[in-house]
């Protein structure tokens, strides 16, 4: 082949490939018009309703949707609001979503009961957990920040707390004083994740350092956390404030299924393993005082399950292709 022939072949192929790639990209763009289209009207706090992230493939994927809790398999109302993680209480919601870009970045959006967007905060990282305090005033979220760890192969977390009334934002809980086993503690490798609020001032969360995790009790006024109990991840406080449902690491991480869903009684510090024996990687949500809901991998990424909070009974699949329920 002459040089001319070879150049012609390469140029021709480059044009064809460019047309193919561009065509595919444009078709994909047409599949999703802009996000957050106006959808069905959903009002947070409506009794007998579950609001959640819809995981089904299709136009409603990753939108907040609602079904009646009496018939969770019924057709879903699609709000049009895109959220990767969501939680709400007392008419205030916190929607964490990914922002397009080269590096992982997110947007934390405060929404009202009608899911109208009020304030939003940008940051770097991939959305992981979010919680709103029972009064709806405080909101917390955790993201995974890439490139913020020693080896570059692990992710590190960053947890922020926002006062939605004053707009005061604590960008990272790592600014707080840590009291570990009664003494002040400092370490470069501290990570926080999974805040759950008791009230507008007090919260619980996970603290990790030197390969171990602790349940910590935090105080936003004192800007301080203190350790309570070891081996607690992603705590979720019961509605009466006496128990915490959490992920307990019971096996090595190498097998990929290290956690057992467990409930800790905060008065006696007694642990009760729940009847769910599969490894749960989620911050559970209390359906009521007696049941918790959580996510397990499913055909569309996540299914929702419930199990009694006292260790009895068996797991029950509440709905498929859903995440982050708010009851």
């Amino acid at each position: 082949m002459t040089l001319r022939t070879r150049l012609l072949i390469v140029v021709g192929a480059a044009v064809l490939l460019a047309v193919a790639a561009t065509g595919y990209t444009l078709r994909a763009a047409a599949r999703h018009p802009a996000h957050t289209g106006a959808g069905a009207r959903i009002v947070l706090g409506t009794p007998g309703q579950i609001v959640f992230r819809d995981m089904r493939m299709g136009p409603g994927k990753d939108h907040l949707a609602a079904v009646a809790s009496a018939s969770p398999g019924a057709p879903r109302a699609d709000s049009g609001l895109v959220c990767a993680r969501f939680h709400a209480a007392a008419g205030t919601g916190l929607c964490l979503r990914n922002r397009p870009g080269l590096t992982p970045s997110y947007e934390a959006v405060v929404v009202d009961a009608a899911l109208r967007e009020h304030r939003s905060y940008d940051g770097a990282g991939i959305p992981s957990r979010t919680r709103v305090s029972p009064s709806g005033r405080m909101a917390a979220w955790t993201v995974f920040v890439s490139g913020d760890s020693y080896g570059g192969t692990n992710f590190s977390t960053r947890t922020s707390i926002l006062d939605t009334r004053t707009g005061h934002l604590v960008p990272s809980l790592e600014q707080y004083r840590v009291i570990k086993d009664g003494a002040p503690y400092r370490s470069a490798d501290i990570n926080f994740w999974g805040v759950t609020f008791a009230d507008d001032q007090h919260f619980y969360a996970t603290l990790a350092t030197r390969g171990k995790t602790w349940l910590v009790a935090g105080d936003t006024a004192k800007r301080q956390v203190r350790t309570l109990h070891q081996n607690v991840e992603c705590p979720s406080l019961s509605p009466d404030g006496t128990r915490v449902a959490y992920k307990k690491r019971v096996r090595s991480a190498a097998g990929g299924n290290p956690w057992r869903l467990t409930v800790l009684d905060l008065r006696t510090m007694r642990e009760t393993p729940l009847a769910e024996t599969r490894s749960v990687d989620d911050q559970a949500v209390w359906v009521d005082g007696g049941q918790v809901a959580y996510s397990l991998p499913g055909d569309y990424g996540s299914d929702l399950w419930t199990v009694p909070a006292d260790g009895s009974g068996t797991p029950h699949r509440l709905m498929t292709a859903a995440l982050n329920p708010v009851f």
Partner: peptide
């Protein structure tokens, strides 16, 4: 990747398709 991702409204498969096209061109 950034250009494709923003053109495709955060859809990932066009990034992989474009990446495949570049890889084929490299082979050629």
């Amino acid at each position: 990747a950034f250009a494709v991702l923003s053109a495709a409204h955060q859809d990932y498969d066009p990034v992989f398709v474009a990446s495949t096209c570049f890889a084929v061109l490299g082979l050629l």
